[in-house]
């Protein structure tokens, strides 16, 4: 249905019609996500290189991560993605509505929960003396195999970059949910495409985590 799409008033001067504007916005978002894939791609390449070089260290490091919290966070993000999908679907039918805003708001809260849990995990690992950066004693790394420090380097950098994306995503979802209403932001972003694009971004953030979780938490866990 075109009815819920871009209204005449929202058509920007450079576009001929609403269809063109929607196509352009969606394509722009997809290309942006491609750049994001390459952002994370560098870290995945580095991870692969070092995991091949130091397999024992990666098993050792993975064993020091909290599997329960990691699994909880995976469920939290999957749940939030489900809510975002529902919100975008609602908005694609009727445009901006109270229901769509509620879905996105709830997803943003789950995003906050994810960040809180993640912060706890970082703190635990740091308490164990496994923070790889400056100011940590290197003693804790002595018991592990060579390269253990590298594993935790990747752990902090990868989950850190991902958490930054979650944070940006939470802000986007919150604005869509109406947090920026008093500032007059909602009028500008009220069209269907905006809901779809915000959803796309959140799903991307979710998918990155679906790769990070097994790579970091699930190395040779089957043996207990």
């Amino acid at each position: 249905m075109k009815a819920a799409g871009v209204k005449e008033a929202e058509l920007q001067a450079q576009f001929d019609d609403a269809g063109q504007q929607e196509r352009a916005s969606a394509l722009g978002m997809w290309i942006f996500l491609a750049t994001e894939v390459l952002f994370f791609g560098v870290l995945f390449v580095g991870y692969t290189v070092y995991r091949l070089a130091y397999p024992e260290a990666f098993v050792w490091g993975s064993g020091h991560l909290d599997l329960r919290l990691g699994t909880l966070n995976t469920a939290v993000l999957l749940g939030s993605s489900y809510l975002v999908a529902l919100g975008a679907l609602t908005a694609s039918g009727k445009g901006t509505s109270r229901r769509a805003r509620l879905f996105f708001g709830a997803a943003a809260l789950l995003g906050c929960l994810f960040l809180a849990v993640k912060g706890m995990e970082w703190y635990h690992v740091w308490e164990e003396g496994l923070f790889p950066g400056r100011g940590s004693s290197s003693n804790s790394f002595q018991e592990g195999a060579e390269g253990g420090r590298l594993f935790f380097g990747f752990y902090y950098v990868m989950t850190g970059l991902h958490a930054l994306h979650v944070l940006i995503g939470v802000c986007v979802l919150a604005v869509m949910a109406g947090v920026g209403g008093p500032l007059g932001w909602r009028r500008r972003i009220g069209n269907r495409t905006a809901w779809e694009l915000a959803g796309l971004y959140w799903h991307f953030v979710d998918i990155v985590w679906l790769f990070l979780f097994p790579l970091l938490y699930l190395i040779e866990r089957s043996g207990g």
């Binding site: 790889p132 390269g147 420090r149 902090y156 950098v157």
Partner: peptide, 11 residues
């Protein structure tokens, strides 16, 4: 931050 990814001292 001292988080070495390219640092030969830590492998």
């Amino acid at each position: 931050g001292g988080i070495g990814i390219f640092d030969p001292a830590i492998g």
